[in-house]
Design a binder for these strands. Structure first.
Length: 570
RNA sequence: GCCGACGUAGCUCAGCUGGUAGAGCAGCGCAUUCGUAAUGCGCCGGUCGUCCGUUCGAAUCGGAUCGUCGGCUCCA
C-alpha cells in the first residue's frame, strides 16, 4: 500500500526523534540540533565533537531497534516559555530556537519514552508504527545553515511503514549509484578527471562524438530560429570586468593572468564579450532582435568541496545566447525562448519541467526601477503563457532576475537546466544603443539565456537519464559488426563500409574471440546494434541483428537494416 | 572553504596488531575459428597519492599536503 507524502513525513519526523533518543541514550553529552523529515527520509543534527564513526552508527541502529521494540507512545503537550527554557536548560541550540519563538505563544513539545523534544509535530502515535528505519550517512552541517555557525554532525536516515518499502527504496538508491555518470563515464570511456586539473573535464574521443552530436543538434535548432553564432576570447582585460560589474560581484570566482603589466581575466561569463560585438557597429531598430549565440567555454574557480563529476566543474561550456531587443519586444522574445527550450528538452523525453522565477539578490547592480521593470516583465510573460511557476526570492543573477527550468529525469530526479535572465543593467553600463524609428538613440534590453545550462552538466544528466544507453543518434558507436570466424572478416568489412556511407558510426570486432564474448562486450559498451555475420549471412547477403534492448531480432537484408537504422537515426 | 571518510597494478579490490606487496578483470603471447552476455594456458605489470617524521625497519604509526567520495555552504 502506498503511503501519502504527509504520512511518510510524519513517520520520518518521528523516526528522527527516535534517532535522537537513541543518540542521547548512548551519548548523554551530545547536544541536540534539529531533526526534520526531508524528501526521501530524515536527519537529525547533533553537536558531538568526537564525531560518529561507522561503529557508532551500528550501535545507534541497534539502540533504535530496542526503542521501537519497547514501543513508546508519542505524547504532546504545550508549555510556557520559562518552563521550556528550564526543560531544555542543557540544550543550547534548543534554547536558541525557543528564544526565537513568539513571546506569548505556548510552546509545543513532544515526548516519547525518556526523550523530550521541542517540536511542532505531528507524530505517529507510537514508535512501532514507524516500521523500518535505516541510517544512511553522516555529514557535517552548519547550525542553521550558516558558515558562521558551528558545524554539527548530521545523521541521515530514512524510514518506511514496512521493511518491503524500505528495501524498494534502498534498491532505488543502488540503481542510482549504478547510473552515476562518473562511473559510467569511465566505463564507457567518455571523459576523465585528473589531479593535474581538478574540476576540469577531459573529453575522450567517444565523449567528443556525443558532445559534437549534441552541439550539431543545438546549432541546427538555433540557426532555424534566427540565432547567429559568435565566439569571444577566453581572456579579456581587467577594465572590461570592472565595467561589467563582474569585478565587484564575482571576483572570488575568477581566474587571472598577468601579462605585459596588464591583468587579464579568464572569462567566467560570455556576456561582456558579446556586448563588444554588438557595440562594434551602429544598430537600427530594424535589426532587432539580434540573437548572438555562443558555446562559450567559461572558467569559474569553485570552492574545492563543491566539485562533483560533470555536475559541478570549474570549466564548462554554456550554451549561451544573448538577445538584444527593443523594450516592447521583450515579452515576445522571452516567449520564443521558452518555446525553444521546451522543444530542445522534448528531444530527450524531458517533458515534465518546473519553472522558477528568481528575484533580486543581495549582491546586485542596477537601480530598483530596473529590477522592478525586469521582474514585472518576466512575471507578465509567464502569466500570459499560462505557465505555473514558483518565486525564488533573492536568487537572481547580479544583473537581473531570471527564469529557471527544472526537469525530471527517468528516475524522477530533478535537475536545473535552462535559464532566462532579463538585463537592463549591462546595456546601461556599456551604453548600448540602437537608432529608433524616430531617428533618435534608444537603449536595447538584453536577455541572457541558456537551454542546457552547461553542456558538461547536461551530458552528465543525459548519461544518468539513459543509464549510459544513449539513444542511437548520440551513441559513439552505433553499430558493431561481429564476424563469427576469420573467414567472415571480408564480408564484415564490406557491410561496415556500406553502413559508413550512410553516415553510420560502425566498427568491426575482428578479434579472435567467441561470439558470446563479443556480444557481452558490445552489450556492456551499450552499442545500440550488433550485426552478427557468419556463413549463413555471407552466403545470403544478409545480417543477423541484435539490439542492446531487445536481443536477437533475427536476420534481415542489408537494405532492410539500413532503412530501419536510418529511420531511427533521423 | 567547512565536517567526516577514503587514496595499494589501467579497473575492482585483498593485505590482522610495522619485517620492503597479492587476486580477478583488462593488456600482451600461444593455442583455438568457435553462432547471440566471459575458450584455455602462459607472460608483463605497483618507488602502496605526495612530502616530512617516528623506527634497525613503514603500504601498515604520526604530521602536513594534494586529490576523490558523502554532506554543509555556494552554483550552470
Amino acid at each position: 500500500m502506498e503511503s501519502s507524502a504527509a504520512e511518510l513525513a510524519r513517520l520520518r519526523h518521528s523516526a528522527s526523534h527516535v534517532l535522537a533518543q537513541a543518540v542521547k541514550t548512548l551519548y548523554p553529552d551530545v547536544k541536540l540540533g534539529i531533526g526534520p523529515a526531508i524528501e526521501d527520509g530524515f536527519y537529525y543534527d547533533f553537536d558531538w565533537q568526537e564525531g560518529f564513526t561507522p561503529d557508532d552508527i551500528e550501535k545507534i541502529e541497534a539502540e533504535i531497534a530496542r526503542i521501537i521494540a519497547a514501543n513508546p507512545v508519542f505524547t504532546h503537550r504545550e508549555v510556557a516559555k520559562d518552563e521550556a527554557l528550564s526543560l531544555f536548560a542543557d540544550e543550547p541550540y534548543k534554547i536558541d530556537l525557543i528564544n526565537e519563538l513568539p513571546e506569548n505563544e505556548a510552546i509545543s513539545i513532544y515526548n516519547q519514552g525518556s526523550f523530550t523534544d521541542l517540536c511542532k509535530g505531528p507524530h505517529v502515535e507510537s514508535a512501532n508504527q514507524i516500521g523500518a528505519i535505516k541510517l544512511l550517512s553522516v555529514a557535517g552541517a552548519y547550525w542553521r545553515g550558516s558558515e558562521k555557525n558551528p558545524m554539527l554532525q548530521r545523521i541521515y536516515g530514512t524510514a518506511f511503514p514496512t521493511q518491503e518499502e524500505l528495501n524498494i527504496h534502498l534498491e532505488r538508491l543502488e540503481e542510482a549509484r549504478k547510473r552515476d555518470h562518473r562511473k559510467l563515464g569511465k566505463e564507457l570511456d567518455l571523459f576523465s578527471f585528473h589531479e593535474e586539473g581538478p574540476g576540469f573535464p577531459f573529453w575522450h574521443p567517444k565523449g567528443m562524438i556525443v558532445l559534437n552530436e549534441l552541439l550539431d543538434y543545438w546549432r541546427c535548432e538555433h540557426s532555424q530560429r534566427g540565432y547567429q553564432e559568435v565566439k569571444t576570447p577566453m581572456i579579456l582585460n581587467e577594465d572590461l570586468w570592472h565595467r561589467s560589474g563582474h569585478w565587484d560581484t564575482y571576483r572570488e570566482n575568477m581566474y587571472f593572468v598577468n601579462i605585459d603589466e596588464q591583468v587579464f581575466s579568464v572569462k567566467p561569463m560570455n556576456c561582456p564579450g558579446t556586448i563588444l560585438i554588438y557595440k562594434d557597429s551602429m544598430k537600427s531598430y530594424r535589426d532587432l532582435p539580434i540573437k548572438y549565440a555562443e558555446l562559450g567555454h567559461v572558467h569559474r574557480h569553485e570552492k574545492s568541496g563543491v566539485l562533483q563529476g560533470l555536475f559541478r566543474v570549474r570549466a564548462f561550456t554554456q550554451d549561451d545566447a544573448h538577445v538584444f531587443c527593443r523594450p516592447e519586444q521583450v515579452q515576445e522574445e522571452i516567449g520564443k525562448i521558452i518555446d525553444l527550450i521546451e522543444s530542445l528538452y522534448s528531444k530527450f523525453g524531458f517533458n515534465e519541467y518546473r519553472i522558477e522565477l528568481s528575484t533580486r539578490p543581495e549582491k546586485a547592480i542596477g537601480s530598483n526601477e530596473m529590477w522592478e521593470m525586469a521582474e514585472t516583465a518576466l512575471n507578465e510573460t509567464l502569466k500570459s503563457k499560462n505557465i505555473n511557476y514558483q518565486i525564488n526570492e533573492g536568487d537572481g543573477a547580479f544583473y537581473g532576475p531570471k527564469i529557471d527550468f527544472h526537469i525530471k529525469d527517468s528516475m524522477g530526479r530533478s535537475w536545473q537546466l535552462g535559464t532566462i535572465q532579463l538585463d537592463f543593467s549591462m546595456p546601461e553600463r556599456f551604453e548600448l544603443e540602437y537608432i529608433g524609428e524616430d531617428g533618435k538613440s534608444h537603449r536595447p534590453v538584453m536577455i541572457h539565456r541558456a537551454a542546457f545550462g552547461s553542456i558538461e552538466r547536461f551530458m552528465g544528466i543525459l548519461i544518468e537519464h539513459y543509464a549510459g544507453a544513449l539513444p542511437l543518434w548520440l551513441s559513439p558507436i552505433q553499430v558493431i559488426i561481429l564476424p563469427i570466424a576469420d573467414r567472415h572478416h571480408e564480408y564484415a568489412k564490406e557491410t561496415a563500409s556500406k553502413l559508413a556511407e550512410f553516415g553510420i558510426r560502425v566498427k568491426v570486432d575482428s578479434r579472435n574471440e567467441k561470439t558470446g564474448f563479443k556480444i557481452r562486450e558490445a552489450q556492456m559498451e551499450k552499442i545500440p546494434y550488433m550485426l552478427i555475420v557468419g556463413d549463413r549471412e555471407a552466403e545470403a547477403g544478409r545480417v543477423s541483428v541484435r539490439s542492446r534492448e531487445s536481443g536477437d531480432l533475427g536476420a534481415m537484408s542489408f537494405d532492410e537494416f539500413a532503412s530501419k537504422i536510418n529511420a531511427e537515426n533521423s
